[in-house]
Simulated assay, not measured.
Amino acid sequence: MERRTYLRALGVAGIAGTAGCLDTVDQALSGGHDGDGILPPPDHPTGASYPEYGEEFPSFSLPDPIAETTVSLEDFVGEKPFLLTYFFTTCPDGACPALLLRLRWIQEDAAEHGYEDDIALLAFTFDPERDTPEVLRKYAGERSIDYEADNWHFLRPETYDEAEEVMTETFNLPLRRVEDEDEAGGNESHDETGDHEDESDHNEHDHGEYTFTHNNLITLVNEDGVVERAYPSAVQSERAVDNEQIVEDTRTVVGVE
């Protein structure tokens, strides 16, 4: 199916550390699960504030700047599962490229095994000031992502304020923009709080104008809009989900034999 035809059919967490892409797990309890998933319950639920196993994923509606359309949760509920991650293209420590690499693995596996029309891959940028449509196209090309495929969508709010609101209020994920002059003070604050995460998840960078603190998260949602997996340590730690596991989980949720 052609991308434009497909799109017309559609109708459209506490922060620790201050550098680059973080892997913080918000410890605020979110309550009990709302239902059962296709996958078995995870071995170690985190009790995080963001949607986890068995919980309904929150409704969203966001622009896809390359396809020039709007992508909503309702486009997928009752239709197909999706994976969603969160990134910015100037991420200096390699974590954001690694997150998108995992979605690219799924895209390649889906093409190879014939379920490319049965999965959606969503990449939400919270840095719209720098992540213009042209930058996103170039970024995808550099990483061998087929951004023109029916199953890939970049999601880009118009402003950072909108992006921050979606991240923190809709997706319930921590996000903080860190200016150059804030780095030293932010690191001291992290030390003073005693809220120490795995140091392999935090890095310091010469990043330019500003960077972000955020979770390195990938969420797998089934076609009923229920979370199957929230991989809270998708990269950069001993808890990182590997290629085989995320592909296997996705195949199971899609129903690929």
Rank of each mutant, 00 (worst) to 15 (best):
G32V: 10
R3I: 06
S189E: 14
E204P: 03
Y6I: 08
H205C: 10
R4W: 05
D224L: 13
R176K: 12
W105T: 01
W105E: 14
E228L: 06
I119N: 04
D201K: 12
L121H: 01
A95P: 00
L84N: 05
Y53W: 14
E55K: 14
G17N: 08
T168D: 05
I145P: 00
Y6D: 08
D201Q: 14
G20Q: 10
G94R: 06
D43W: 03
E248I: 01
P133S: 08
T85D: 13
T5L: 12
V166T: 09
T89W: 04
I246M: 08
P97A: 07
I15D: 06
F60N: 07
P174I: 07
G20F: 04
T46D: 11
V71T: 03
A67T: 03
G94V: 07
L39T: 06
H214E: 13
H153R: 04
L173S: 05
E116A: 15
S72R: 09
L173E: 06
E112M: 02
V256T: 15
F126E: 00
G17M: 07
Y210F: 15
L100W: 00
Y231H: 11
F60S: 08
E197F: 04
G141W: 04
L173A: 09
D109W: 03
T219W: 06
S233K: 12
D161Q: 11
D109S: 11
G114A: 05
D43M: 12
T89S: 15
F82I: 02
P133A: 10
E142L: 07
N243A: 13
S72F: 00
A163I: 01
G225I: 07
T90W: 07
Q27W: 06
V247H: 02
L217Y: 02
F87L: 12
Q236N: 15
F60R: 10
S233T: 10
N187V: 09
L7I: 14
S189K: 13
E158P: 01
P97M: 03
T18Q: 08
A149W: 03
D242H: 04
T219R: 01
S59N: 12
A123S: 14
L29N: 15
C21E: 08
M167W: 07
T250L: 00
F76T: 00
A48G: 15
F126C: 04
I38R: 09
E209T: 10
D127E: 05
P42C: 13
P58D: 14
D180T: 10
T213I: 10
R229G: 05
K80M: 10
L103H: 08
A123R: 01
Q107E: 10
T24R: 11
G114V: 06
D242L: 05
P42E: 14
D206M: 10
E165L: 11
T252A: 15
E162Y: 01
N172P: 00
D75R: 00
D201T: 15
E199P: 15
E165T: 15
E112D: 09
I66W: 02
A48P: 07
R176F: 06
D198S: 13
P63C: 04
D180L: 11
I38P: 02
T5A: 15
G20H: 09
G54E: 12
R229S: 07
G32P: 15
T219E: 12
L220C: 08
P58K: 12
D118Y: 02
V256M: 11
E158D: 15
A95E: 07
R251H: 04
G94I: 02
P41Q: 11
E199D: 10
N215G: 12
